[in-house]
Amino acid sequence: MPDATSGPAWERRLLLGLLLAPALLWLFALIVLPQIDLALLSFRERVAPREYVASLAQYRTFFAEPLYWHVFVRTAVMSLAATLATLLIAFPVAWTIAKLLRGRLSALLFVVCLIPFWVSETVRTLGWMILLRESGVLPALLAHLGVTAAPVELLYHDATILVGLVYTSLLFMVVPLVSSLESLDNSLIEAAYDLGGSGWSILREIVIPHAAPGITAGCIVVFMLMLGNYLTPTLLGGKSSQWFTEQIYTQFIVRFNWEQGAAFGFLLLALSTSMVWLGLKLSGQRFGDVMRRT
């Protein structure tokens, strides 16, 4: 293979272009083009059969209709809560893998976190349904133990959706956390301890600042996955899930209102982009640093 760093400049540029071509083609054809088309769709209104005019009507509908608003905010807040819960659960797991266990045990725990992801998300979520539905394993157990008088329905609650979301995205938080904690030199922790630090102050002053890019990376990925998740809220939340992706699905597939669906899609994109931007600002991280950790 020719060395990409030698030869005339145009030759090098051509080689670089050829190497990047498949990725660029994929990006352009499957992401950029449809997005442009959706953007155009979202900014028009049907005035008569097969007759469209440019307008902001789709966005106006969103702001005028309280249901859409409500679902939008609810999706954002629940995703945020679930992201925080994932971080709180994943951090001790990642700490154990990166710092407390060595060699085989550490690898084993990592595999234990990974194994559920060998099964498709649908099957995993159906597994939760078997456990949680009224005639399922957990309500029966609770009734048997006398905690509840009769089996109760554990599906279709907000808490159930949160549990499902956390479970689905745990790995995506654990991986960047493990890699950022592994790179933390143990002697820094010892030095902080030696200088009088307590467990809490070391966590706050040394561990979290060091792991910040990993934490931010994990939170961004997990938040995006939750915001765009369709299956888990629909199956575990049922009719009461009220997830924004369902609204988009309804507009496109049920109501055949592509214009409205496209506008909703863009609103979701704007939401996730602004949340990522806000997250980076609040944690003082640079996008490039964070993305290298994912």
Binding site: L188, A191, D194
Partner: peptide
């Protein structure tokens, strides 16, 4: 008595200065 409560401080082999500060 834990290391954080001893009247002793240590200069580490790799110095272990805190790069985040």
């Amino acid at each position: 008595v834990g290391p954080n409560r001893r009247p002793v401080n240590m200069v580490f082999q790799q110095l272990a200065l805190f790069p985040m500060m």
